Simulated assay, not measured.
Amino acid sequence: MARYEEIAQDLRVLITSGEYPPGAALPLMRDLAEQYGVSDITMRRAYGLLTGEGLIESRGRSGTFVREHPDRLRLTVRTRQMERDELGYYSGPETQGWRPLQLPDGEQTQVVTLLVPADIADTLGVAPDTRLTVRRRLIGDPDVETHRQLADSWLAPWVAEELPLLSGRTGLGGMYDRLEEWGSQPLQWREEISARMPSPEEAAALVMPSTGVPLLRTLRITYFAEAGPERVAEVQDIRMSAAVFALGYPLPRGESARWPVEPATGDYYQDPPEA
């Protein structure tokens, strides 16, 4: 282990144990460099590791401080299910009051044609260098600045061709109502959840620290019930801050785990194993 990694580990233990609580100022780098007998460069690398982990943050001339870490917070748990009210579909009861917020260009919905990301291209069955119609929105709680998400809806080519109105205002009920009206059948959804670090633009839009906090990324895949999951109509790329949100969902039993089950070790309570 390099010397800067050893120093970072020492400081990490002091932070996670509460010796340096959230909001506490860390010693000046030059003082720690003298204490450890290392150069300023070594200390900067140690602090850089902890910054990248989201444990500390620099506040310019004020110094370096311990950040409130997600593991010590009670995150808002987002339930992964589709709900509906008089305005249309929404994803989970926690977001019912959320509304479109203003994008940097001043619009609430930006409809543009862009190169599709490779993983979304694969899901839609198109080449990675394909340009597709995407509806881009920033949605959130008007009363809580950090409770928001970016949502980019990538339309399958056949959907954009059959429903050109989705390239403009979709009206009450939104895109999903228009799709169900057109198809005369219900939509179904599945989701894939991952995490990555945000771009500077994403961090700014989601009111996130510029370093040390990952995005939670959910790809919501939309298809018609009769057509099946292979004929995808839309993929929504949803990003939210992992410093604010966790994702929660029920964990159903598979067919092989249907109750009652045969105990793996026989009748434990009648014939317990010897100590």
Rank of each mutant, 00 (worst) to 15 (best):
W154A: 01
E68M: 09
V66E: 09
P104F: 13
I56V: 15
R169T: 02
H147Q: 08
E5D: 13
V232S: 02
G23P: 11
R12A: 14
R196K: 06
P260G: 07
R135L: 10
P93V: 11
G254A: 12
T51P: 00
E180T: 07
I15H: 01
W98F: 06
P260W: 10
L206I: 06
L215S: 06
R72I: 12
P128K: 01
L87T: 12
D85I: 05
G97D: 00
R253C: 13
R99Y: 01
A127Q: 10
P117G: 04
D31P: 02
E6N: 12
R220L: 14
T16V: 15
Y176D: 02
E86I: 10
G140N: 03
M82S: 09
V144T: 12
L87N: 14
F65W: 02
A246S: 13
Y89A: 12
V207G: 00
L32R: 12
G248K: 03
A225V: 14
P260R: 04
L251T: 15
Q188T: 04
F224P: 07
E255K: 11
V244I: 05
E262G: 01
T76F: 12
F245W: 12
E94A: 00
V66F: 11
A227S: 05
S62Y: 03
A8G: 09
T123Y: 02
A257G: 04
R196G: 01
R217Q: 10
T123F: 05
R45Y: 13
T76A: 06
R178D: 09
D10N: 05
E255P: 05
H147K: 11
A2K: 15
R169M: 08
S167C: 14
F65V: 05
S39G: 06
R136W: 04
A204C: 11
D237G: 11
L187V: 08
P104Q: 03
L50S: 09
S210P: 00
S39F: 07
M197R: 06
E6F: 15
I41Q: 05
H147L: 06
A195G: 03
S210Y: 07
L124R: 02
L216N: 10
H69V: 05
V112G: 08
A24V: 07
G248W: 00
V235Y: 07
E53I: 11
G248R: 07
V38R: 02
S62P: 01
A257Q: 08
E53R: 08
A24L: 02
R253G: 02
E202D: 02
R258C: 00
L155C: 06
P263Q: 09
L215E: 00
A121L: 09
V261T: 13
R148S: 03
A33R: 05
R61H: 10
P273C: 09
E234F: 06
V232Y: 05
S210F: 05
S17N: 15
E161D: 09
D122R: 15
W189M: 15
Q81H: 04
E68C: 05
L219H: 13
P21I: 04
L251G: 01
T109L: 07
R3G: 03
T170F: 07
L87R: 12
L14I: 07
G37L: 14
S91V: 13
Q236G: 08
F245I: 10
R67Q: 03
H69P: 02
H147N: 15
G63P: 06
T222H: 13
G183D: 09
P186V: 15
G60Y: 01
R178N: 04
P252T: 02
Y90R: 05
Y47H: 03
L26P: 00
E57G: 01
L49R: 08
S91A: 11
R253W: 08
I193L: 15
V13I: 14
